[in-house]
Design a protein around this nucleic acid. Structure first.
Length: 863
DNA sequence: CATATCACG
DNA sequence: ACGTACGTGATATGC
């Protein structure tokens, strides 16, 4: 299918303009919008390979909407002149690129886009609408997609019918009706007062459309009904205003819109005038025989749909099987499975079946008997579901989400449509289940050579893939919670909060919301006249963060009260109420460990985040008492790596002093204090040690003098001296860190000990800040990421050994450098031994990896 | 929906 | 002259 790309010129130029800092040529022409637009356009051309392309613009003249309803878009802020002047400039560039500019008096860009995509559909073309304006979503259709620019310049989301359903629960038509009901403040479309997104959707689900609501207005009860009846005309008008026209007369033909060569002479002249050196260079570098991705052949060609049973019958043992399971990822009760779809690529057989709670286990059983090598996207929910139903014999062979995460860990999400676009250069209709499985197969096959080329095949196969099951096991086991304990802690906190609040109000002489940083700042630094200890950022912008308030604690007792208030409310809302709300029907909490979120390779944890349960604060630590073993006779065993990141720094840099210290079990912070401050080991005071500790952390983070000084509350000069002294005494560390930055600058990526890659695109920027950030990332990521590699290997080993030995103890938590096992009493000693052995021997390093171990009946007791 | 804050490693 | 330590997630507020 040929592809037509149409861009909302105004919308993208706006985004581009505000995403950039100011750019002016020597002649005083403002160019940053045009510059960023061209950047985005290049990316669009590269990503989507259009056959036809056009850019639509609004015109200054009033549109037919203004004529019918003069208040339309009234009250909008004036567009800055610097931006307005860039519209004709942009159009000039587009013309030089031989890209058609569409505009028509009396219509908005949206109407032109609506019209062109309707024409495209008639002509049998696929359309991609690129815009930053959500209103375009009403144009989504069978072969019409909207690519929405969310924020910045590179964050795009592709919407098809399914994605709209998933995101809003609405069809494109309903989207228009919703806007008719709720109106739109930014366009000054009235809608019905009191109807927002929620009520709007309820009304739509009940009556189908604005017309339906109007026809049944009498039936609607209460205040809502009154509002509806009083604003019937407004609703109809609003819908009309919100509807994008799809039949504007536009005299263009497809051949004119064909995407082809630019007018090089004209473009070069323009780029010179605009001082776009980067684009000039790119133009010169471009060769006509650039590699183009071959579009996939028809995905479904040769695929045969068979019954689920037949597919299984003809599936040989231990063969690759693409699988997609509809299961919910809600961990509060037993997951509900709705359907399973399979594709056997060997025979090109596809099958799907709906699943009921009754036949799920039988159907999965007959599938798993074939011991298939399962391939899918985001397999963990399936693994979790199987484990929850007591099925533990399955092999996860390839998860395209996890694979893609290794290839590009900076991404925020990994969805099929985008990946398919990337690997096959084709859009994918998300509703076609059969096609989705073909796409999975296609992506899977293309990821293998990509992983191989990047040297990450072993990391993928031997670490990340087995980890899915390990994690699913932890989630499935979960942790039992004592709700009574949490509730009584909550009541206690409530009294504290009430008391502190009253005291703060008393001293402030006024009541306000202490949880509002804005109000708090105003009360403290204006009403009460407390001098603000930092320079104010902009106008009336006070930070009330703890490190700022702590400077005032001594002189102003209120501030202490505020800090105590904040501590208590944090505990109450996040750790008492938050946790209580996540207890499952089995009395346990089953968190989600996310494997594809953290760019360094770490896991993250959500709903709840059990990786940030309080421990440093004595009061907060008590929360851990509510986490209990699931059987009274069991016991938790916790083991944490001692100083794993500093040990890695020693190993990776080969610094002789650090290596020696870790080999002999020296106190590393004390040693650092002694060397940096030039005092004998035995004279190091606790203060010296704690400062040295901050220096050691700083080394791992790629510290700056400023950062360290902020952290320690010392002058920048002193901080810088510490840093210089440290690097002088540990030249190898300095060399190692410099080398990482060099590698990053060279390759735009750095690696961990197991070959995990993190791209650092910030190195491509020429802004000082980005370069500084890039350097810190290059220094930190290999350390943090290698530590993540190591504990992941250890987790797999621990989990595998527990299962191989058919032990009943279970891994339950990972907290970055720490593992917690819930052990049955008869296995306690074995658990302690195997936990330590597998953690300390996860990898071979030039320093020992020592663990500290603790055990107890509640999480609190692991100290 | 972004921001500020604070919990953890 | 500027803005600055790495990686996460949850909550409340306010536009």
């Amino acid at each position: 299918m040929k592809r037509f790309v149409i861009i909302d010129g105004n919308s993208l130029l706006f985004r581009a303009f505000f995403a950039m800092r100011e750019m002016v040529t020597r002649d005083g022409i403002y160019t940053q919008g045009v510059f960023a637009f061209i950047n985005m356009l290049n990316k669009i051309l590269e990503d989507y390979h259009p056959d036809y392309i056009a850019v639509a613009f609004d015109m200054k003249a009033p549109t037919f909407r203004h004529t019918a309803y003069p208040e339309y878009k009234a009250g909008r802020l004036k567009t800055p002149m610097e931006l307005l002047s860039q519209i004709p400039l942009m159009q000039e560039v587009l013309q030089a690129m031989n890209i058609t500019v569409l505009e028509k008096e009396g219509f908005e860009a949206d109407d032109l886009i609506g019209t062109m995509t309707a024409k495209a559909a008639d002509a049998g073309l696929e359309s991609l609408i690129i815009t930053g304006d959500k209103d375009a979503l009403q144009l989504v259709g069978e072969n019409t997609y909207v690519v929405l620019n969310r924020k910045g310049m590179t964050d795009f989301d592709l919407y098809d019918l399914e994605k709209m359903q998933e995101r809003y629960g609405l069809t494109p038509q309903e989207f228009i009706d919703l806007k008719g009901l709720m109106g739109d403040k930014s366009d000054n479309i009235p809608g019905i007062p009191g109807v927002g997104e929620k009520k709007g959707i309820t009304l739509l689900k009940e009556y189908g459309s604005v017309e339906g609501v109007v026809a049944h207005a009498d039936e609607i009860k209460g205040k809502l009904g009154e509002n509806v009846r009083a604003n019937l005309e407004e609703a109809e008008l609003s819908k009309w205003l919100a509807t994008i026209k799809r039949d504007v007369e536009l005299p263009v033909s497809w051949p004119e819109l064909a995407y082809g060569e630019p007018d090089y002479d004209r473009l070069i002249a323009l780029y010179k005038k605009l001082e776009f050196k980067k684009f000039l260079q790119n133009l010169e570098r471009q060769t006509p025989d650039e590699v183009t991705v071959e579009p996939e052949k028809d995905l479904l060609e040769g695929v045969k749909e068979v019954s689920y049973e037949d597919l299984l019958d003809s599936l040989k043992n231990n063969r690759t099987l693409i699988i997609e399971m509809d299961t919910d990822d809600n961990h509060k009760q037993l997951p509900e499975v709705k359907g399973v779809r399979l594709y056997n690529p060997e025979q090109m057989h596809y099958a799907e079946c709906t699943v009921t709670p009754l036949d799920f286990e039988i159907r999965m059983g007959s599938l798993l008997d074939k011991e298939p090598e399962l391939v899918g996207l985001g397999l963990k929910p399936m693994a979790y579901t199987l484990l929850q139903y007591g099925m533990d014999r399955f092999t996860l062979h390839h998860d395209v989400e996890v694979a893609e995460y290794l290839l590009d860990p900076n991404r925020s999400k990994y969805n099929l449509t985008n990946m398919f676009l990337h690997y096959a250069n084709e859009t994918l209709d998300g509703e076609d289940a059969q096609k989705r499985l073909m796409a999975l197969d296609c992506i899977y096959r293309k990821q293998l050579p990509a992983l191989e080329e990047k040297g990450m095949l072993s990391l993928f196969r031997d670490c990340e893939m087995p980890l899915i099951r390990t994690i699913a096991g932890m989630e499935s086991q979960g942790m039992k919670i004592n709700p009574e304990m949490l509730k009584s802690a909550g009541e206690e906190l409530d009294t504290q909060i009430a008391k502190l609040e009253a005291e703060v109000f008393e001293e402030a002489g006024t009541t306000f919301n202490i949880n509002s940083p804005k109000q708090l700042g105003e009360v403290l630094f204006e009403t009460m006249g407390i001098p603000y200890p930092k320079k104010t950022k902009g106008k009336n912008k006070y930070s009330t963060a703890a490190d700022v308030l702590e400077k005032l604690e001594e002189d102003y007792p209120v501030v202490s009260k505020v800090l105590m208030f904040r501590k208590a409310s944090k505990l109450k809302s996040t750790y008492v109420d938050g946790l209580l709300g996540l207890i499952g029907s089995d009395g346990r909490i089953h968190p989600h460990f996310n494997q594809t979120v953290a760019a360094t390779g770490r896991l993250s944890c959500t709903e709840p985040n059990l990786q940030n349960i309080p421990i440093r604060d004595e009061n907060g630590r008590n929360i851990r008492k509510a986490f209990m073993v699931s059987e009274p006779e069991n016991v938790f065993v916790g083991s944490d790596y001692s100083q794993i990141e500093l040990r890695l720094m020693a190993a990776l840099s080969g610094d002789p002093v650090l290596l020696e210290a870790f080999r002999t079990g020296e106190d590393i912070h004390r040693l650092t204090a002694s060397r940096v401050f030039d005092i004998p080991m035995e004279d190091v005071t606790p203060l010296d040690r704690s400062r040295a500790k901050a220096v050691n952390f700083g080394v791992i983070y790629g510290m700056s003098g400023f950062g360290l000084s902020e952290n320690l509350g010392i002058t920048r000069k002193d901080a810088q001296r510490y840093i210089d002294d440290y690097f002088e005494k540990h030249q190898a560390v300095k060399d190692y860190l410099d080398r990482q930055v060099e590698i990053g600058k060279e390759n735009f990526e750095v690696k961990t000990i197991m070959g995990r890659i993190r791209q650092i695109p910030e190195f491509k920027s020429r802004r000082y800040m980005d370069q500084q950030l890039a350097a810190r990332l290059a220094m930190n990521s290999p350390i943090q990421g290698s530590a993540a590699d190591i504990i992941k290997v250890a987790m797999n080993k621990v989990d595998a050994e527990l299962r191989e030995r058919e032990m009943k103890s279970k891994l339950v938590l990972q907290i970055h450098d720490e593992l917690i096992v819930e052990a049955v009493p008869e296995e306690l000693e074995q658990v302690e031994e195997l936990l330590r052995r597998n953690m300390e021997n996860a990898v071979e390093l030039s320093v020992p990896l020592d663990c500290d171990m603790h055990s107890g009946k509640t999480w609190f007791d692991l100290k």
